[in-house]
Computed example of a mutant assay.
Amino acid sequence: MRKANWPILEHGADINAGERIMRTRNISRTIVWLALLGVLSPAHALTQQELIAKIEAAGYTQVSDIKSTPEGTAVKAIKNGKEVRLVVDSSGQIKEQK
């Protein structure tokens, strides 16, 4: 049963140009927000194998002692023959700790 004050719309009938523009803008804004959320939020956390591969691709070897911390994932690795401590943050950035 149809409510009396709801118009039946067929292919844009009974919608003036202003309403059509506003609906299009709202839909466009929603699409943009959803796209931004997808870009800014990682789809998934890196697996341990992906994490090691990323660190090795950055020139580190012997990745070990992998631990989760509030700053990100902390690891030990070797670069240029020296042991270094790294943190890989939620965006995938690798940072050496002093």
Rank of each mutant, 00 (worst) to 15 (best):
Met1Gln: 10
Met1Pro: 11
Met1Ile: 10
Ala4Pro: 02
Asn5Gln: 10
Asn5Leu: 07
Asn5Tyr: 09
Asn5His: 11
Pro7Gln: 10
Pro7Leu: 12
Ile8Glu: 00
Ile8Met: 03
Glu10His: 04
Gly12Asp: 04
Asp14Met: 13
Asn16Glu: 00
Ala17Thr: 03
Ala17Ser: 01
Gly18Cys: 03
Glu19Met: 10
Ile21Glu: 12
Met22Gly: 09
Met22Ile: 06
Arg23Ala: 00
Arg23Asp: 00
Thr24Leu: 03
Arg25Ala: 04
Arg25Ile: 00
Arg25Thr: 02
Asn26Phe: 07
Asn26Asp: 10
Ile27Thr: 15
Ser28His: 14
Arg29Gln: 15
Thr30Glu: 10
Thr30Tyr: 05
Ile31Phe: 08
Val32Met: 09
Leu34Ala: 11
Leu34Asp: 11
Leu36Ala: 13
Gly38Ile: 15
Val39Pro: 04
Val39Arg: 11
Leu40Gly: 06
Ser41Leu: 13
His44Gln: 13
Ala45Trp: 09
Leu46Ala: 12
Leu46Met: 14
Thr47Ile: 12
Gln48Asn: 08
Gln49Arg: 15
Gln49Pro: 11
Leu51Asp: 02
Leu51Gly: 03
Ile52Pro: 00
Ile52Met: 02
Ala53Thr: 13
Ala53Gly: 08
Lys54Trp: 07
Ile55Trp: 02
Ile55Val: 07
Ile55Pro: 05
Ala57Thr: 14
Ala58Thr: 10
Ala58Asn: 12
Tyr60Lys: 07
Thr61Ile: 06
Val63Pro: 04
Ser64Tyr: 03
Asp65Thr: 14
Asp65Cys: 13
Lys67Arg: 07
Lys67Pro: 02
Lys67Asn: 09
Thr69Phe: 00
Glu71Tyr: 10
Thr73Phe: 04
Thr73Arg: 02
Thr73Leu: 00
Ala74Gln: 13
Val75Pro: 04
Lys76Trp: 08
Lys76Asp: 05
Lys76Phe: 10
Ala77Val: 05
Lys79Thr: 03
Gly81His: 05
Lys82Glu: 14
Val84Met: 03
Arg85Tyr: 07
Arg85Ala: 07
Leu86Ile: 05
Leu86Asp: 00
Val87Cys: 02
Val87Asp: 01
Ser90Cys: 03
Ser90Gln: 07
Ser91Lys: 14
Gly92Arg: 11
Gly92Ala: 11
Gln93Cys: 09
Ile94Leu: 12
Ile94Asp: 09
Ile94His: 14
Ile94Phe: 08
Lys95Met: 15
Gln97Trp: 05
Gln97Glu: 08
Gln97Lys: 08
Lys98Ser: 12
Lys98Arg: 11
